[in-house]
Write a protein that binds this DNA or RNA. Structure first.
Lengths: 152, 152
DNA sequence: TAGTATACGACCAATTATGTCGGCGTTTCA
DNA sequence: TGAAACGCCGACATAATTGGTCGTATACTA
């Protein structure tokens, strides 16, 4: 119901965790999982997905683990969600893929597709860095302003 | 995965259908369901929810059915979705209700709550009327512009 | 070569979404 | 006044998706 999956949440949390520790060479899935109390094996799979998507670099063996493949500032929340949950569409039937076979009636979808794009735009404007900075509320890190326009 | 449920879709479709027929006194759940080829009993339940939420007025008995309780322009997509799917939150754990009991670690959530508000704002700015108008693309109905700002 | 790590597919469990059934109350109209 | 057309409601049943586990293979380090 218009909600992020836990996997996406976990993925964002993990990337944020890595972003907060730029000095470390790599962190294992277990390290991160323990830090948040989430299932290690599940997180491992998520991190593997992020690796395949090119957001992380992995290294096996002792002292191996995962590290951001780019600057935290250069990784958007959208990319993370997309890598984990696949392309998202607010509407069940997207005009892109075959459309609503059964209901050629879904005329609602066209306006909602705009909403979809708007949300995607917002998510694209948020970086992992933004998430990590919010860890220090007193520091009052620099404000990011994203402006999105929706024309129906 | 950040997607509207079919119920919400159906609800929006039904309201749009009603909005396109302002002259009719009332339409039965079956009429609308048949028009779109969706399960009548399911739609009936959805319309009942919308009635309870005050978006529709119902009338039992022969020639009964449902009608918008307000102008289509005065009913937002947000209200419809909210009435059907309940309050939506992008994050699994909302700081409102108890927060993440198990993970006091969900620091991601705070920035994402902003995203949530942004999406809600967009949805609030779209009326059933907007959906209905899009039925006539050649008419090129008047453009609605919603501007949303997101400050992290 | 032992130990620590990722990689990946298969599988099961839990949750949620979708749809159905049956009975009841209301209104209309012949 | 009673049958037909409708809404109302709760309890199911079924399907789909998510969340999580297991086992095994592979890679790297010391």
């Amino acid at each position: 119901m218009l909600k992020l999956t836990k996997k996406a949440d976990y993925g964002l949390m993990a990337l944020k965790y890595l972003a907060e520790r730029p000095e470390t060479v790599a962190l294992s899935a277990k390290d991160i999982a323990d830090a948040y109390g989430i299932p290690a094996q599940l997180l491992a799979k998520i991190l593997q997905q992020l690796t395949r998507a090119g957001l992380l670099r992995s290294h096996a063996g002792m002292n191996g683990g995962y590290a951001l493949s780019r600057e935290a500032r250069e990784i958007s929340a959208y990319e993370v969600i997309h890598a984990i949950d696949g392309p998202f569409f607010i509407t069940s039937c997207t005009k892109g893929a075959k459309g609503c076979e059964l209901t050629p009636s879904c005329t609602i979808k066209e306006p909602l597709a705009r909403v979809n794009d708007t949300i995607a735009g917002v998510l694209k404007s948020i970086s992992i860095q933004d998430l990590a900075e919010h860890e220090h509320p007193h520091g009052r890190g620099h404000e990011v302003k994203a402006l999105v326009s929706l024309t129906l």
